[in-house]
Simulated scan of single mutants.
Amino acid sequence: MNDGMPGAYHTGQTYPSVYTFGRKLVEQAQSDGADVVIFTTPHPNTNFMTDSMWVTPGTSSYPSNPPIPADNKAGSTVQYVNADGTSVPASYRHVRVNESLRRLAADTGAILLDAEKYWFKAVAKYGLGALFDTNEYAHPNLLGHQQSYWLAIDEFVNSLNTASLAAAPKPVPYSPLVTYRVDATTRTSSTTLAADSQLGVDVGANQVWEVEIGAYYTGTTGDLRIGLALPSGASGRLGVTGFATNATGVESGPSTHRSVALPDTYGLPVGGNDADAFALARGIVRVGSTSGSIKPQWSQDTSSSSATTIYRDSYFKATRIA
C-alpha cells in the first residue's frame, strides 16, 4: 500500500521497478523451492490525496532512465467500475502498481491473491471513510483489511483441493481503467487531430487493449473527428457510431457506422447537427515493441471559427485483454 506513494514512486523504486526487481525476487525464491504468493494492494484514501500530496511537476527529481513523469495524471483519481456497475474512485498510481503485480504473477507462475478487487467492492459498499481510521490515508483499518486481504486469502484457501499451493486459482482478468473530462474543451479552426490532455492510459510493450471513447459534444458548423494517439509501432482498428456529418436534427437524419485501420491521422467524422450530440467509438489496439500512451484525439471535420465543444464527462475506457 506504500508502493504507489510519492517518494518511492517518483524515484522509480516501485514503478516500474516493482516488476523488474519483483521478478528477480520471485525467481530466486522459486529456485530455492518456495511457493511464492503475491498480493495486490488496497488503495489509499483518495479523498485526502490531493495533487500536492502526490508531488506535482517541478517539485521532485526523477532518474534519467527510465523517466517517471510527475504530471497531473500520475497524481489523479480514476474511476473503477465493479462487475455490478458501481463506480468507485481509485488511485491511478496504485492501479499501475497492481497491474505490474498481476503481470509479475502471470509471467512467473506465482500465486496471485487479488486484494484490490475486494477493496473496490468494499469502497462501493461502505465508503472510503469507514475503511480508514481518523487522520489515516494510506493504511486501511481493521474493516479495510477484513474486506480486502482477508477475503482474498479466504478465496484462495477455499479453492485448495490438495496440500500443495499449486492448486491456487489463476490470475483474475485485467480491470478496466476509466478517465473522464472534468471540464469542457474546444477545437476551433482546425482539422488536425490533437490528443485530449485529460483522457488516456499508459500501456506496456506487446500488450493488447480494448478501448472505448464516449464523446458528448456539439459543433453545428465544424462537426467533429475522433481519433487515437498511439505509441510508435502500435496498430489496430477503431470504429464509430454517431450522427453523420449531414444530419440536421436529434431524432432524424442519417447516422454513420464506420471504422478505420490504426494508426490513422485523419480520424472518424461525426456530425454536430443542431443540438448536443453523443458519439461512441470502440476499437482494439495492439501495442508493438514500444510502450507509451493511448489517448483520444479530437478535431473539427470542417475548419470553422465556430468552436466544436467536447463536454465535461466525455470519457475514455481501456481494458487490457492480452
Results as ranks from 00 to 15, higher is better:
A105T: 12
A138V: 15
K121T: 14
Q79I: 11
F39M: 14
W54C: 08
A130H: 05
A115N: 07
F39I: 11
D133G: 14
V88H: 05
S61Y: 14
V36G: 09
G33M: 14
I68T: 14
M49T: 11
T41L: 12
K73E: 03
V37I: 15
V36K: 09
G129C: 04
P57R: 03
R96Y: 00
A70C: 01
W54H: 13
G75T: 08
M49S: 09
D84I: 06
V37K: 02
W54Y: 10
D35K: 13
V95I: 10
K125H: 13
K73I: 07
G85C: 08
T46E: 06
F120V: 01
G85N: 08
I111M: 05
D107H: 06
N98L: 05
D133R: 00
T46W: 04
L101E: 02
D32M: 13
V123R: 04
V78P: 00
A105M: 05
P89N: 06
V36Q: 10
K73S: 03
S76R: 01
S52N: 09
D51G: 04
L128Q: 13
V36E: 04
H43Y: 06
A110Y: 14
D32N: 15
S61M: 11
D35A: 15
Q79F: 04
P69M: 04
D107N: 12
F39Q: 07
V37M: 15
A105F: 11
G58S: 06
F48Y: 13
P42A: 13
K121N: 15
Q79P: 00
T86L: 01
R96D: 13
E99S: 15
W119L: 07
A105N: 11
V55H: 14
T46Q: 08
D51A: 10
A122L: 02
P67R: 11
E99C: 04
V36T: 12
N135T: 12
H94P: 02
S52K: 05
P69G: 00
R102M: 15
Y92S: 11
T59W: 04
T108N: 02
F132K: 03
A122K: 06
T46H: 06
T50E: 12
A90T: 09
E99K: 11
D32W: 07
D114H: 02
T40D: 09
E99T: 07
L112T: 03
A70F: 06
R102C: 09
A115V: 10
L113W: 03
R96F: 03
H43E: 12
D51H: 15
H43G: 11
F48T: 10
K117R: 12
T56A: 10
K121P: 02
S76H: 06
M53T: 11
Y92A: 13
Y126Q: 01
L104Q: 01
W119F: 13
D51T: 10
E116V: 04
S60N: 12
D51N: 06
Y80S: 09
F120Q: 08
G85K: 12
